[in-house]
Design a protein around this nucleic acid. Structure first.
Length: 265
DNA sequence: TGCCAGGTGATCG
DNA sequence: CGATCACATGGC
C-alpha cells in the first residue's frame, strides 16, 4: 500500500533511533522488519511511503507510523520552548514515534536494561525465532504471545543469552496473561524487572504517553553536557523535561537521545 | 583487563 | 528514604 503526501518522515531515523529493534536496512534503501504479527518491507520516495506487508490494513500501518501527527509542528513547539534543542531536532529530522504493541514493548524494554542496542536486537530476534508464530509470506516470526512466553523454560532463555532478564520475561508474560495490559506507570513499576526508566520507555513507545521522558545513560550524558545537570540527578532532569517540554517531552527525549548516541558528542 | 551498554532488585544505614 | 553492589553478556 502507498501513503501519499507524507512529510517529516525518514525511515533511517525512525528505525535507528532506538525505539524499536526488529527493522533493518535491506541494502536497497528499504527496511524490512516486523510489527507485532505482521512482516513488511517499507521504503520512502519523495513524499510517498510504500508498505509491502504480509498483513494489517491501511489503518493499522497509518497508525503504526503515526502518519496523522504533524511532526513539523511538534518540532517548532519544542524549539520555541527550549531553543537549545534545535540542533538535536534538526539532526533527527523525520523521526516518528511508532505505535508499537504494548506487550512487545514491555518485553523488549525489559531486555534493554543494562544492555546495548545490537545485543538487544539479537536477544529479541532469538526470542521471536523460538517462541513466535511463523508469518505467512515471510521468513520472520511474529513477536511471541504472552501465552508462549509464559510457558517458556528458564533454562532455554538462559541458553539464548538473555542473562538475568530471563525470569523477568517469564514473570511479565504470566502477569500480562492474567491481568491484561497495564494501563499506567505505577502498574508497570510493580512488575519485576521494570524500574523508572523501562516504565517510561513502555509508557512512551507502547502506551503512547508522549509526556514520558525516559532517562537512560545517554540522556544523563546529554543533560549533563547541555544543561549542567549532575549525572545522578534523574529527578531534576525529569522535572526540567516536564517544565520545558510538557506533553511533548517524549518527542524531545527521542531527539536528544538519538543525536547524542549517534554523534557521541 | 576493566568499563560500558536505553537499569533494576536486594540490602543496609 | 538514598547509597551501594551484584547481576549475564559481549564489544572494545
Amino acid at each position: 500500500m502507498v501513503f501519499r503526501d507524507i512529510h517529516d518522515l525518514d525511515l533511517t531515523h525512525i528505525f535507528e533511533c532506538g525505539q524499536c529493534f526488529r527493522w533493518m536496512p535491506d541494502g536497497s534503501g528499504a527496511y524490512t522488519g516486523a510489527a507485532g504479527s505482521f512482516a513488511a518491507r517499507v521504503f520512502a520516495e519523495g513524499d510517498t511511503l510504500t508498505v509491502e506487508a504480509t498483513g494489517g490494513d491501511e489503518a493499522f500501518w497509518r497508525n503504526y507510523f503515526d502518519l496523522d501527527t504533524d511532526y513539523g509542528e511538534i518540532k517548532n513547539r519544542l524549539i520555541e520552548s527550549e531553543p537549545r534543542i534545535r540542533k538535536a531536532a534538526e539532526y533527527g529530522y523525520g523521526i516518528r514515534i511508532l505505535n508499537q504493541d504494548p506487550f512487545e514493548t514491555i518485553i523488549s524494554f525489559i531486555i534493554s536494561q543494562n544492555n546495548n542496542i545490537p545485543r538487544i536486537r539479537k536477544n529479541i530476534e532469538s526470542l521471536c525465532d523460538k517462541y513466535g508464530e511463523p508469518i505467512e509470506g515471510s521468513s520472520r516470526k511474529a513477536f511471541p504471545s504472552p501465552e508462549a512466553l509464559a510457558q517458556a523454560d528458564e533454562a532455554d532463555l538462559a541458553a539464548m543469552k538473555l542473562g538475568y532478564r530471563g525470569p523477568y520475561i517469564i514473570a511479565a508474560a504470566k502477569r500480562y496473561m492474567e491481568e491484561g495490559c497495564p494501563s499506567c506507570r505505577d502498574e508497570l513499576l510493580s512488575y519485576l524487572g521494570i524500574g523508572p526508566k523501562v516504565a517510561n520507555c513502555i509508557m512512551l513507545f507502547g502506551l503512547r504517553d508522549m509526556a514520558a521522558f525516559p532517562v537512560d545513560t545517554w540522556v544523563k550524558h546529554i543533560m549533563n553536557d547541555m544543561y549542567g545537570f549532575d549525572e545522578g540527578d534523574t529527578k531534576g532532569m525529569q522535572r526540567f523535561a516536564a517544565e520545558r517540554f510538557g506533553s511533548l517531552a517524549g518527542y524531545a527525549q527521542q531527539y536528544l537521545f538519538y543525536y547524542y548516541r549517534d554523534k557521541k558528542l
